[in-house]
Design a binder for these strands. Structure first.
Length: 889
DNA sequence: CAGTGAGCGAGCTTCCGCTTGACTT
């Protein structure tokens, strides 16, 4: 008697193995095992000639019947499951209890066609009791829920595969649109429009430094003649003036200074004092979304990296599952958190009752627990022995989980009014009466001003009638600020709030919009591109419903009805796609309506010139007054986004195009002219004109830190004389040169190794203090003598030294790598096999593993070669996209 | 890499979710 149990994740398989009898075999499906064909080569031959198959992989002519295929990457998994099933006389489908999980089970049934009894089992916690109970409560696959998933899948396919081709035709090839990404892009564009339209306003106020009984405190002017003083929120962002209907006093610099002079020597009297007790409740434990936000804000880690690190922690058994939308904690988890609080902070810091949090988001499917330290007792961050990011992330998760079972923080807010003449100043303080969960956790904030709130601000014990001394009075000017750009954190937060996207996709959505050229990351901000503006405008104008934040939640409502059996999926899709206002009809109509030129043209507020999306990127088009002549076209440098483009920028770009490049001077030796030019990759100098005889005049980029206005003839000549020969290496007689490369200035040592014909090159980057034009021979030797900076982190120190290899006496060590711990000997690396530990492995075992690896290396040469290609591609993503653009012409 | 924005018209690009492999250090 044996039972095959299929779960989604291999880690889960490993853990539940401990709670099931040995006659149970546990396998993982690794997520979905079938999907719609992603491209033409995946379409089965039977459907190859069908239009609908090629366009959608869904039969839109016949009740949206989908073609499901096993993707190449999943063939192995499916085979393994089939083999495992042959040995079993019972099948238990234990995929997650949400829409996608139910669907995976259904697909498994379709694929495996089991002849043995089948049960569907669901569990939310991986404990012996929970799994035993789940085994008792098996059910059948819920077909309605499966239909809801299919509807979601098909709808996304229809939206994506109709709108994207429309964009190829109307705007640029390779673009994409989708239910999730297009809304995300639109959010960025809308915010950028607000920022462009924003009119800043100035206002002044006074800050006083007062002193009572030798204790200083600060107070700010709040009213004048009983009228409220204007602050940033009183301004209308569209005009930069005080918003209509606001009865406030606006001070300019002169008025503020005059007021200051008038008030400084007067008598200041405390007129009012108020105290207000408040509470702060701890935050709920982490979901994927809140973890990504906090890791981004507090640790500066991107959503993608957060997930990568969390996955590691999960696989190594440190935390529970990291893709979840639930804040629910198991009773064991609550008990563990409470025991942590008692031990580390004491009974008084414990919340009086165990706290269970409930998920607010309507779209939540709650197939998993909140993200928390794994197990029935939590290891403290120190006990884990983790390091670097893994430690920091675990620490964050541990603190948040423990804090959620702690007592509320109790604060007292104190406000004191101080009158002087016709003005009232206010001083605000905050006293923490009991820190409660603050002891463990203070949430990071998008708004640094708000983060400061958590700090204690103490005031001297003032009472009404006190007359503090005014030590200093300062007039301070302020400028209202435009709304902040989205960061990864705030975008994820908004998407989750609107129910758009799922825990498993937040990080990839951001990746997609960057990959497609819809946005770029500038420090932490997501800045939309010109393409994003063009695409968003088109979609807003012609498909407003689809790019509305409400679209997904409407869809979700219908999916819920389908899941409950109260709605049918085919009529819904029919209406959505084939209906009078359906997508198919709309796309057809709009395709004729949309003018290609107009779609590629971007209108920006307060910019007259037209911006157009060309094949090689965005350019400015200035119409000529003379109708006969062609309009003027000026390329916009890459990395310049709509955010940077103001009328002055355009002016300067147009001017350069019209008047030609600035001439720096004539080359002292050849007499050729030297130009300073603006290229798509920045400013550069060029020697001579481009002619038929000289099709490739010498050009050199300005190094970082050199501004175009600083370029003298001397600098230009110097740059154009690069590479500069510094001398010959004393050891090898090889040439040492200095030059500018793609990654900045460098020195290189060129030499030939004994017997080798090929020239070897040893590169070192110059440091910030070095100048490529003047760097000396000695300095170059010094740099070359330094070891190459190892890429990545502190992977230098071995975790464990095993000893020296019997063959060559070279050390055999164990290191920590991004792909797990591994054994290193010379250039051969081999991962530690499953079941072995860093501590347990012997030198003999390691030597055997290394020999095995060295033997297989020859046979897998082909595989590593293709893989190498992949990584280099990845490394040079930025370059790739730009060269791609340049080479399509 | 470096001044374009179109066209002979093959075949291609593209969606959202669920998972960990491939890679190597």
């Amino acid at each position: 008697m044996s039972t095959l149990v299929i779960v989604e994740s291999p880690t889960k398989a490993r853990t539940i193995r401990n709670y099931l009898p040995s006659s149970y075999q546990i396998e993982a499906s690794m997520g979905h095992v079938r999907d719609l064909p992603s491209s033409a080569d995946e379409i089965p031959t039977a459907y190859k000639d069908k239009r609908w198959a090629k366009d959608f992989g869904v039969n839109v002519e016949n009740d949206f019947e989908p073609i499901y295929v096993v993707p190449k990457t999943k063939k192995k998994v499916v085979q393994k499951l089939k083999d495992a099933l042959k040995e079993a006389d019972e099948l238990i489908l234990a995929t997650d209890e949400d829409r996608e999980g139910e669907s995976i089970s259904w697909h498994l049934l379709q694929l495996l066609k089991p002849k043995v009894p089948v049960k569907r089992m669901v569990f939310h916690e991986i404990t012996r009791e929970a799994i035993q109970k789940a085994l008792q409560d098996c059910r059948a696959v819920d077909e309605d829920l499966v239909h809801a998933q299919e509807t979601r899948r098909i709808l996304d396919r229809l939206v994506g595969y109709t709108l994207s081709p429309l964009l190829w035709k109307k705007i640029a090839r390779g673009l994409s649109a989708g239910r999730v990404q297009s809304v995300a892009v639109r959010l960025l564009v809308e915010r950028e429009r607000e920022r462009r339209a924003f009119q800043s306003g100035d206002y002044w106020d006074l800050k006083a430094l007062l002193e009572q009984d030798k204790s200083p405190f600060e107070a700010k002017l709040i009213t004048l003649d009983g009228k409220k003083l204007a602050t940033g929120s009183d301004f209308d962002p569209d005009t930069g003036k005080i918003a209509e209907g606001r009865d406030v006093v606006l001070l300019n610099e002169t008025q503020a200074n005059a007021l200051k002079e008038r008030l400084i020597d007067q008598t200041w009297t405390v007129s009012n004092r108020e105290e207000r007790a408040t509470k702060r409740r701890p935050y709920p434990p982490f979901t994927t979304s809140t973890l990504q936000q906090e890791a981004n804000r507090k640790l500066g880690i991107s959503a993608r990296d957060t997930m990568r690190v969390a996955q590691k922690l999960y696989e190594q058994g440190y935390i529970t599952y990291m893709r979840t939308d639930s804040v629910h904690l198991s009773t064991e988890a609550i008990a563990a958190a409470r025991s942590c609080v008692e031990q580390m902070y004491g009974q008084e810091y414990l919340s009086p009752k165990p706290k269970q949090y409930s998920t607010k988001s309507k779209s939540a499917q709650e197939a998993h627990e909140a993200i928390r330290p794994a197990g029935n007792t939590f290891r403290t961050p120190k006990e884990t022995g983790l390091a670097d990011r893994e430690f920091k992330l675990y620490d964050l998760i541990w603190k948040r989980t423990v804090a959620c079972q702690m007592a509320d923080a109790r604060l007292t807010q104190i406000t004191v009014n101080v009158d002087v003449e016709n003005a009232v100043f206010r001083s605000s303080g905050q006293r923490i009466d009991f820190p409660g969960f603050f002891r463990a956790y203070v949430e990071g904030s998008d708004d640094p001003e708000a983060a400061l709130e958590n700090r204690e601000v103490l005031l001297p014990p003032l009472k009404v009638g006190d007359t503090p001394d005014c030590k200093e009075l300062e007039a301070i000017g302020h400028e209202t600020q435009p709304p902040a750009r989205y960061t990864e954190a705030s975008l994820v937060k908004t998407l989750e709030k609107e129910g758009i996207g799922r825990p498993s996709t937040y990080a990839t959505v951001i990746g997609t919009i960057i990959d497609r050229g819809y946005a770029q990351m500038r420090s932490k901000a997501l800045v939309p591109s010109f393409t994003a503006f063009a695409v968003t405008s088109l979609l807003e104008e012609h498909f407003p419903d689809l790019v509305n934040t409400g679209f997904t939640s409407q869809m979700e409502q219908t999916l819920d009805e389908i899941a409950r059996g109260s709605a049918h999926w085919i009529p819904y899709l029919k209406e959505f796609f084939k209906g009078e206002k359906g997508l198919e009809t709309q796309v057809k109509v709009r395709e004729e309506q949309i003018d290609t030129i107009a779609a590629k043209t971007i209108r920006l507020d307060n910019v007259d010139a037209k911006i157009r999306i060309g094949r090689y990127g965005p350019f400015i088009e200035v119409d000529n007054d003379n109708e006969e002549e062609e309009s003027l076209k000026v390329a916009i440098p890459v990395n310049l986004t709509p955010a940077d483009l103001d009328p002055e920028q355009i002016q300067s770009l147009v001017k350069q195009k019209l008047e030609g490049p600035d001439k720096v001077g004539l080359h002292p030796e050849t007499g050729e002219p030297i130009y300073l030019k603006k290229g798509p990759y920045g400013d550069y100098v060029q020697l001579g004109d481009k002619t038929d005889d000289n099709p490739k005049p010498k050009q050199k980029s300005l190094p970082k830190g050199v501004k175009p206005e600083d370029v003298t003839l001397e600098i230009a000549v110097g740059l154009l004389s690069l590479p500069r020969l510094l001398g010959l290496h004393p050891g090898t007689e090889g040439k040492i040169k200095a030059d500018l490369g793609r990654f900045g200035p460098y020195v290189v040592h060129e030499f030939k190794e004994e017997g080798e014909k090929k020239l070897q090159r040893d590169y070192r980057s110059l440091k910030a203090e070095d100048d490529v034009l003047t760097v000396s021979f000695d300095r170059a030797l010094e740099l070359l003598a330094q070891p190459k900076r190892t890429r990545g982190k502190s992977s230098k120190k071995p975790l464990r030294e095993l000893g020296s290899h019997p063959e060559d006496n070279e050390p055999v060590n164990i290191y920590k790598g991004p792909y797990g711990d591994y054994i290193k000997h010379g250039k051969v690396n081999v991962g530690i096999p499953e079941g072995e530990t860093v501590e347990g492995i012997t030198l003999e075992a390691a030597v055997a593993l290394l020999a095995e690896k060295a033997a297989t290396k020859k046979t897998t040469k082909k595989a590593t070669k293709t893989a190498k290609k992949k990584t280099t591609k990845k490394k040079t993503t930025t370059k790739k996209t730009t060269t791609k653009k340049a080479s399509t012409g």
